[in-house]
Design a protein around this nucleic acid. Structure first.
Length: 321
DNA sequence: AATCGGGACAACCGCCAGGGT
DNA sequence: TACCCTGGCGGTTGTCCCGAT
């Protein structure tokens, strides 16, 4: 069963690399390229197995590796790609020039996973956690996340796609539930028809407490945006006359021709990416400043979120009569 | 000052797929 | 067709660092 490890021969060094070893490896690859990784250690005078050399090079020494903290934009890209691809770290890395799969994997496990958990989202399924009590317990974190604008407002021009808006609607409805359950247990005549993009679902909702959407938190990042709108981690809310109402979300419905165009474009891009698995080609794509949503298959995405929304709506509401 | 616990990240391990013979 | 070699991938472990006690 399985092959023996490539470097189980005695005498080969394991563990952290020293600067001298790094230098040897860099010098050798600069001069000769890596060629056969198995043969490389001997040629380079390293007492390591080829696999160890390859990993050290690809994960750390490669000159095109970007060092430093992940940007909010990168965070968002990773989260969205992970929701589509799962733990396909190499595929995700392909869309983040200069980042390695290992780095992204580590970053996910140590940062982003927790961030999603705090927002009440299951990092594995990217669905809302169904344990409402947990959500209630996590309310402060959810609210903190709601003020975490950097993730979402970094690029004002980024297109809001259906997925983003659906997520926005979802978190919005969660907050509604929380607000409802913590206030007067009013009957909610929610409809599961066309939850996205229309305000009927949100009409006549109970007031939301000021600490949920503190007006002082409202930001206007875009001159073209009405002053009475504000950004949240789940999208841009427009503020209505009634300050006590939860501001309705922006409509998710693109006009049909735009949607069709986007679908065609996305499929072309996905096709393109299938043929260009190497980082340089995908980095070209990313460097063109394509919004992340352009690389998402909208058909899959929409049906996926539709399913979530339908499930959410069909679930018995907590504390409901 | 010493110890402990948790977080972060580099490195390793085991498995798999694809190409060559 | 079967086998071997190689590189790639995802999961896991080991180690270091830092803050709390």
């Amino acid at each position: 069963m399985g092959r023996s490890p490539c470097c189980d021969e005695s005498g080969l060094k394991k563990g952290p690399w020293t600067p001298e070893e790094d230098q040897k490896l860099i010098n050798h690859i600069r001069k000769h390229g890596h060629g056969s990784w198995r043969a490389l250690p001997k040629q380079a005078g390293l007492n390591r197995c080829g696999k160890s050399c390859r990993l050290r090079w690809t994960n750390y020494l490669r000159p095109d590796i970007k060092r430093g903290n992940f940007t909010a934009e990168e965070d968002q890209t990773i989260i969205n790609l992970h929701s589509l691809l799962g733990n396909k770290w190499s595929s995700i890395a392909g869309h983040l020039p200069g980042r390695t799969d290992n780095e992204i994997k580590n970053y996910w496990n140590t940062h982003l996973r927790k961030k999603l958990l705090q927002m009440g989202i299951d990092p594995v399924t990217h669905r809302p956690r169904t344990d409402h009590l947990n959500v209630l317990a996590a309310l402060p974190q959810i609210l903190a996340a709601a003020n975490f604008n950097n993730l979402w407002t970094l690029n004002q021009n980024i297109q809001l796609d259906a997925t983003s808006v659906a997520k926005a609607q979802l978190l919005h409805s969660m907050i509604q539930v929380l607000n409802h359950t913590s206030s007067s247990f009013l009957d909610i005549h929610h409809t599961n028809s066309n939850i996205v993009g229309h305000s009927s679902f949100f009409e006549n909702r109970p007031n939301i407490s000021e600490n949920l959407y503190d007006p002082t938190q409202r930001l206007s990042h875009n001159d073209h945006q009405p002053v009475d709108s504000f950004s949240s981690p789940i999208g841009v809310f427009s503020h209505q006359d009634d300050q006590d109402m939860i501001p309705p979300l922006v409509s998710a419905s693109l006009d049909e021709s735009k949607q069709t165009q986007m679908m065609i474009k996305n499929k072309e891009i996905l096709k393109h990416n299938d043929h260009t698995s190497n980082p340089s080609s995908t980095s070209t794509f990313t460097q063109d400043h394509q919004p992340w949503c352009d690389i998402i298959d909208h058909e899959a995405s929409d049906s996926y979120w539709k399913e979530i929304i339908e499930q959410t709506c069909s679930e018995p509401w907590p504390f409901r009569e």
